[in-house]
Design a protein around this nucleic acid. Structure first.
Lengths: 130, 130, 130, 130
DNA sequence: GTGGTCTAGACCACC
DNA sequence: GTGGTCTAGACCACG
């Protein structure tokens, strides 16, 4: 599983981690029942503070995506896939909506916004993360 | 000039103010040489603390968009239009880029993203601001 | 009499006016008994708000440099020359002291400061005002 | 690192703080990569409101001298030394230029100004800060 | 713990 | 009247 933390993302790191983990589950890269990396290991891998990973994992437990397995770590829950697939689009839409509503507020009309989106899509086409 | 402050925007209020003022200038709603509303007046209009407006105005001075007219107030600079028009798209693109790059990261391909954008565009078509 | 108002001087306009008037008197360009320009006229000449000139004149009256001549305007007092010549150096020294003390604070030693002063003296040698 | 705030400096406190920090960096007293004192600590040390220190630090971020280390504090950037050394002389020269141009305006010639500077240099030689 | 945001209110400088 | 500075203190986000 690959995590890409982007400091200029606008989202806090713990959100980036939890969201990407949800995306991975929705996408099938991480299956129900599997153990996720330990806090320490993931923290080292993405080079962030363990507290940050812990917070992401805590949020994922609250969302019912992860559950503790006594003494072994955290496991993807049985219904995590449903949750994550359902949430995936809404998370993304919500964020898009914020950006697009500001476009409208700045006076752009729908075709202009679509044009701008296409420009960004091209910019991010090849190496599409940052 | 209309200001819409959205507490759940993600952006701090002073940023919303300065960005919207840039958009208004880029759009021609506010012209070079005009005085902007006084700190106190705008603060009252958008129902925020004068300090918050003052910070937005200060940021706009740093960006060269406003200039002080001693004892009279703040004036839109001569080259503000250039600055704002140049910045408008980049500010919006930067925000779109964050959202779109996360879409890619979540496994969506370009057509899927475009589809999602269209859905959001429809959602925000009529009462599109917040 | 020539006035040069420099917005980037650091000093408020009314101070620039009153100080330059003192310098003019110290220098003999303006003599005891002479009437100074009216508030309106000087305001127009240097393109500032009449209130600003009025404030400068008020300060000069407080300092005993100008005195009102009923119905005619303001006149340079008899002892103005003494006052202005005495003040001239101290006003200039006080200002230099502020700049030089910051140089020391920044870690420059005396020869380095002298070198810096020489550089500024060269820069301002030809057209020496701004 | 030593900070000397002088209320009668003419410069606002936050400027005095940011300028002295730049001088400290230019001088090597503060190195790239080091964490600067926390807002709260410095505020207490120089006995000003934390907001005032925060503003100085924010200005230093805008100038690219400091960068945030999320949750840890503010760090001197890698290129801060370049920036600060380049700025140091220009900041000081700018202030000297204002004082010296006024000397010229008052009718002093170059040797007279140099003489006046020497007088000030002597006055400020021993306990030279305020 | 860190910095950032925001509010409330006082005071000053300038015009 | 204008903007600018500073203080005091609350709250939040982040690690």
């Amino acid at each position: 599983m690959l995590f890409r933390i982007d400091a200029s993302n606008g989202l806090p790191i713990y959100d980036q981690i939890s969201r990407q983990m949800k995306f991975a589950i929705a996408h099938g890269a991480l299956r129900s029942g599997e153990l996720v990396p330990s806090v320490r290991e993931l923290a080292q891998r993405v080079a962030v503070n363990p507290n940050t990973v812990a917070r992401a994992y805590r949020d994922l437990q609250i969302d019912g995506v992860l559950e503790p397995l006594r003494g072994e770590g955290l496991r993807v829950t049985a219904h995590a896939v449903d949750v994550c697939q359902r949430e995936r689009l809404s998370l993304l839409k919500e964020r898009l909506r914020g950006a697009i509503s500001e476009c409208r507020l700045s006076g752009l009309d729908t075709p202009q916004i679509r044009e701008l989106v296409d420009a960004v899509l091209q910019d991010t086409a090849v190496n599409g993360t940052s």
